[in-house]
């Protein structure tokens, strides 16, 4: 329909039930139009928001005036309202705005719109009542909430990654510490065993040499020879232990009394498989 088809508003208003003027006092934008999309009523709130005065819009075709209403599916959905169909809802996320309204900061108002069927004074005739809510603040708050939530989620993700990394490095550190301690223990053990073996070998050689000399002596009574033999056996045992101490290459312990661990000479002097 073209602008030339506009109907004088005086003719339109004769079909309007009285009482629309009270809609001037509600804090939502209200517009009433007929099945030809001619505006019958434009409330003060909508006039203030859109900067379009009542006198400039009433009687005119709303789709021609506001091209945002010429979106796909708009008429298809709204036409049914003129036959008494269910209300039609236009969400702020899919449509942003139905009637462009500029805010004080220069941005466009985000709107939520419901178009409902209202009976005219004629039987079987319905008008469309378009109620526009300002959803700008809600949209901004939700967007801000989403931004903060995404930021918080990103921080949580980063923190989890950092904690995981920290755990990994801590494990490596503990492992390295154990290796280091083990190396230190072995070093001390090798030094100790080397020194021990060296220091014990000197008197042990003297002891074994003396026993051998005593054995060669013909005048030693039979009873004393038995004791000398025991001393020789013990000295050889000491020599065997000293030999094992000299061969220590690893740190290995075994349980001893009172839950104490002591160096296992046998295990420590046995070469490892690797």
């Amino acid at each position: 329909m073209s602008q030339t088809d506009n109907i004088p508003c005086s003719n339109l208003f004769q079909h309007c039930p009285h009482g629309y003027q009270s809609l001037d006092y509600v804090p939502v934008g209200i517009c009433i139009f007929d099945k030809n999309y001619h505006v019958l009523f434009w409330n003060k709130c909508l006039a203030q928001w859109s900067h379009v005065d009542k006198s400039d819009i009433v009687g005119k075709n709303i789709i021609e005036k506001f091209h945002t209403l010429n979106s796909p599916g708009f008429k298809e959905r709204v036409d049914y309202v003129f036959r008494g169909g269910p209300p039609v809802l236009f969400s702020s996320q899919l449509h942003r705005n139905t009637i462009p309204c500029t805010l004080s900061d220069g941005s466009y108002m985000i709107q939520k719109t419901v178009i409902s069927s209202i009976p005219s004074s004629k039987e079987e005739e319905f008008f469309a009542l378009m109620a526009i809510e300002n959803a700008t603040e809600l949209s901004r708050k939700v967007s801000e909430y989403r931004r903060l939530r995404n930021q918080a989620m990103e921080e949580v993700k980063l923190r989890k990654e950092a904690e995981e990394e920290l755990r990994r490095y801590n494990k490596i550190l503990v492992e390295n510490q154990e290796i280091k301690m083990s190396e230190e223990r072995l070093k001390v053990l090798l030094e100790m065993s080397g020194a021990t073996a060296h220091e014990l070998n000197q008197p042990l050689m003297t002891l074994l040499g003396t026993i051998e000399l005593m054995n060669m002596t013909q005048t030693i009574p039979e009873e004393a020879l038995k004791y000398i033999n025991n001393i020789e056996q013990s000295a050889k045992r000491i020599a065997d232990i000293v030999s094992k101490i000299q061969k220590i290459r690893q740190y290995q312990t075994r349980k001893y009394l009172n839950n104490i661990s002591i160096i296992d000479f046998n295990g420590s002097s046995t070469p490892t498989q690797d």
Binding site: S91, K112, L138
Partner: peptide
């Protein structure tokens, strides 16, 4: 893949439902 059903999404879902239900009731 943001699956939070906030007020904006609820409004959009309401419009989708409105379209389907208006079709059926219509």
């Amino acid at each position: 893949d943001d699956l939070d059903m906030d007020a904006l999404r609820a409004g959009t879902f309401c419009e989708v439902g409105n379209i389907v239900l208006n079709g059926v009731m219509g």
